[in-house]
């Protein structure tokens, strides 16, 4: 079942990669459109450093599991497909957890339960099953990278918004992730800022997430209108059909 897709992918690799990038970052963004992985997205995005830490960890796991799943896609029978994927994802997550413990211990303590919970992030199993198991290694790896980036970018945006409005700073505590060179990266945007706890607490995450989705929808609508204006006389058959959530 996968051979056709493989040959198709080989003939137009660049077009495929461009589509993957667009899907992951914008059109089918895991956080904004698919609304997957909301639990870590909302739970951890209280500051830029937390968001970046979990974003990178998640991206590495998606990439790793996508590559591994793509490599073994011809060897795995349908019956044991899902358990094998879950095993692969779990082992990558455990490895990432060990690595974070070894190199960014304080961040590991702050992120706490959310690191092992990467296993349950639907994006990862979703990509493994929907994409990596049907495509060759290069597109699968790139898809993992782009989906991971799409997730990480939204995490970062949320983290920046919440840190800015919640504490009036940006990039505080980056040394937890990047080591001593980042110790003085903190930008105090509003000096003497009174903490706005709502933004730091989970309910604020929901509200800001709602705003991000609304902004994306507004931009989408504007672009659609502009496209319509640009090609007003285009014949009906070739008009772009809006498809969401499909590869």
């Amino acid at each position: 079942m996968t051979n056709n897709t493989d040959t198709a992918a080989a003939t137009s690799t660049t077009a495929l990669l461009a589509k993957i990038a667009k899907d992951g970052l914008w059109k089918n963004n895991p956080a904004l459109v698919q609304l997957l992985g909301l639990c870590p997205l909302l739970g951890v995005s209280s500051s830029v450093v937390n968001a970046l830490g979990l974003g990178i960890a998640t991206m590495l796991v998606v990439m790793g599991s996508n590559i591994a799943v793509s490599l073994i896609r011809h060897q795995v029978t349908d019956a044991i497909r899902l358990p094998v994927f879950v095993m692969i994802i779990a082992s990558f997550t455990t490895c990432i957890e060990l690595l974070m413990q070894a190199y960014t211990y304080e961040l590991y303590r702050i992120l706490g339960i959310f690191i092992p919970l990467i296993v349950t992030n639907c994006i990862i199993l979703g990509r493994a099953d929907a994409f990596a198991s049907r495509n060759s290694v290069l597109p699968a790896a790139f898809d993992g990278f782009m989906m991971g980036s799409g997730f990480a970018v939204i995490l970062l945006l949320l983290g920046a918004m919440r840190e800015l409005i919640g504490q009036g700073t940006l990039f505080s505590g980056m040394d937890l992730l990047l080591g001593p060179i980042a110790a003085d990266w903190t930008i105090t945007v509003f000096p003497n800022y009174k903490q706005f706890l709502f933004a730091i607490l989970p309910p604020g995450a929901f509200v800001f997430m709602g705003f991000l989705i609304a902004i994306k929808n507004i931009i989408d609508r504007r672009m659609e209108e502009r496209n319509k204006q640009r090609q007003p006389t285009e014949p009906k058959e070739s008009r772009r059909v809006r498809v969401t959530g499909n590869i």
């Binding site: 358990p83 094998v84 095993m87 082992s91 690595l99």
Partner: peptide
């Protein structure tokens, strides 16, 4: 057997990292 083989692989990966 397949599943067992993958279990061995993944456990191996984790062991090495550990």
């Amino acid at each position: 057997f397949g599943l067992g083989l993958f279990a061995v692989f993944t456990v191996g990966l984790i062991s090495i990292t550990w």
